[in-house]
Design a protein around this nucleic acid. Structure first.
Lengths: 202, 202, 202, 202
DNA sequence: AGATAATCGAGACGGTACGTCCCGTCTTCCA
DNA sequence: TGGAAGACGGGACGTACCGTCTCGATTATCT
């Protein structure tokens, strides 16, 4: 994210563009990102201070500013490295089962440890547009494409009507979970994915 | 919102229990709220400063803090006074038509001036849970109850299967619009409400 | 030094150009200047930090920067307000006695609290030529003119040769004390003024 | 100054105490000291930074810290190598002539190229006591001892009264020049040494 | 009419955090 | 081993705002 760092060089005599001087400490990297995530959860994006991150990470402020240009960049980097929005991209050929698997995983993430992180990130990305792309990449893109593929395949197989609005149907499940989390401020219980699948694939 | 002003009146036909001293200037109120919305748009919530709001409104800082306790309250008040999330609660007995009317109105609000405000407000309510209620009141409650009533009536009438998950189906439309606005960062074009209704009520 | 502050207004109806807003605290002024002098003595000019001055004075940094533009200005102001280079300008008609009185007073000042202040100020005035005048005014002008007058009168009276270099002889005493303080870094003991007078007026 | 350097002879008998490894670069030495003097003149002692010296000298910071322990040592070394406070220590047996020669040389140095350097050094030594000793060594000690010896010899020879305060009389000349330079901020014209000698040795 | 009282704009207050610069040390690779 | 390069933890810099607190002046209601 933050830097290039000598990309191997496969062959003999490869010039290896190693930067001169002492290399940056990976320990510091980690300590800072950990402290940043702690701070994000503890104080929120607006309330966290780089000064405190530095102190908690046992690091000088300059060491932070050498790597990132500001709070937004730190948070983005921290999230993109730490956040494991862990949703298996299953494809068994059974749409109902695959959809259920996916939504259950999404829901589990939302009510689990990633929930506050995701909610915080979602909240912040409105205020700080520079976070938007990263949010997309980490939480949305892959999973959304997969769901769309699942639905499209089901249409192909004739399990769903030919005039199905693939994009909408694929989005509907996550949209309802997202709505519960962010609008209703209540992610619902474990049965919510089942209810959603039942209603959508009736 | 911000304060208890002239509390009721003790007697019948109370002669207006006006407080002693110079009354607060309504001009100042307006100037501040306008400046606050400008600032919100210009610099974002994180970047706006009360000092600049005061300066732009031609007002002392104390005049602001006399009315609100902080940035969050100002923004909330500004939004709740300015934001008119205008969705007619129609009930013609035709679910498809009513749902379409509602979603079109919601969508129009989202793509219009209210969209960014709503998103900003949604972001706020995560950090300041006390704003959740206001968000609920302004943007959600009435409309959500109405949609649920519409769907329930349709089930009653036998237009929808008896085992329909009323809550989910009522939420699905707004959820998809909200998903488009906040997750996909693209509220979609004017046909989106139609596509949603077509997909949900097939 | 640092500011103007309502210059009286002599007549009736004088507009009195009182600045708007809360007036600056004189307590803060004093606390800062005291802390600054303490710091100057404690850590030296190079070692003192404005941050510590603020902390010791129980004052925010902004309160300091509102009044002065930097360390140099603070020190100068502190010196010019606190430094009372107290030398009585006696003229009894007895050159030897008057000279002795003067040099003893100068010496007392140098070995006392004013010595380091004077030296520090002398250092300042090299970097900031605009301070030269202040140095001259506070430490030099009056006393130097007086001594010259004393010597000139003695020449007039015939106590000293007619070809006496008045200026040089008048300067010689203070010059030797200054030399001891600044070059030899040892202001000498209480007998130094006597030795000087004895040597100069032999 | 700062360190023991591989001393001389390579051949016969010399056990060659040469240290192992790459010898230190004399180029670096010079470049650093030159850059240091430039910086001293440009930014003053307080304003100069070792980081910039290193950069301007095209040298790593470690190369500086390997040779000197801090800013003061660098400056001191730079001055003591570059500054040639060139005062011949004549002793012809003629006090008046020798004194005059000495004071003229001192005065010439003060008004000449060494003036600003000396003034800067003098200014800084008050603020940074670590410079004091070096100032003494470079600008004062030898010359002062010599002048005292001259005066003492004159007393010995009976040219001056037996009760002459040797130390004071020896200091008086330089003291008056110093006073002119630092207190009066005007080193005076070329006749000043003559006036001083005339007044002191009447 | 005068007293009382809350408001107003202005701006200073003690603080916290910012992002930059430099300190003196340490760590890398190259000569 | 010394050199240039540059990262390290630390700390002060001067600035911007925070939310609170005076100021003198203004504008109301209540004697």
């Amino acid at each position: 994210m933050s830097e290039v760092r000598a990309s191997a060089g496969e062959r003999a005599h490869a010039p290896v563009p190693r930067r001169a001087g002492r290399p940056r400490s990976e320990e510091a990297d980690c300590a800072i990102l950990d402290a940043a995530l702690d701070a994000l959860v503890e104080d929120g994006y607006g309330g966290m201070s780089i000064e405190r991150i530095a102190a908690n990470a046992g690091v000088g402020k300059a060491t932070i500013y050498r790597r990132w240009r500001g709070k937004a960049e730190i948070v983005v980097d921290a999230l993109s490295r730490r956040a494991c929005f862990d949703v298996p991209l299953v494809d068994t050929g059974d749409l109902r089962a695959d959809l259920l698997t996916t939504l259950r995983a999404v829901h589990a993430n939302m009510v689990g440890v990633e929930g506050p992180l995701m909610a915080a990130f979602a909240a912040e990305k409105f205020r700080y547009p520079e976070l938007r792309e990263e949010f997309e990449r980490v939480f949305v893109a892959e999973r959304r494409a997969h769901l769309r593929a699942l639905v499209a395949a089901a249409v192909e197989r004739g399990e769903l009507p030919a005039d199905t609005d693939v994009e909408l149907l694929a989005d509907a499940g996550p949209a309802l979970l997202w709505h519960a989390l962010t609008v209703r401020s209540d992610p619902g219980d474990a049965s919510l994915p089942d209810r959603i699948v039942n209603q959508l694939l009736r």
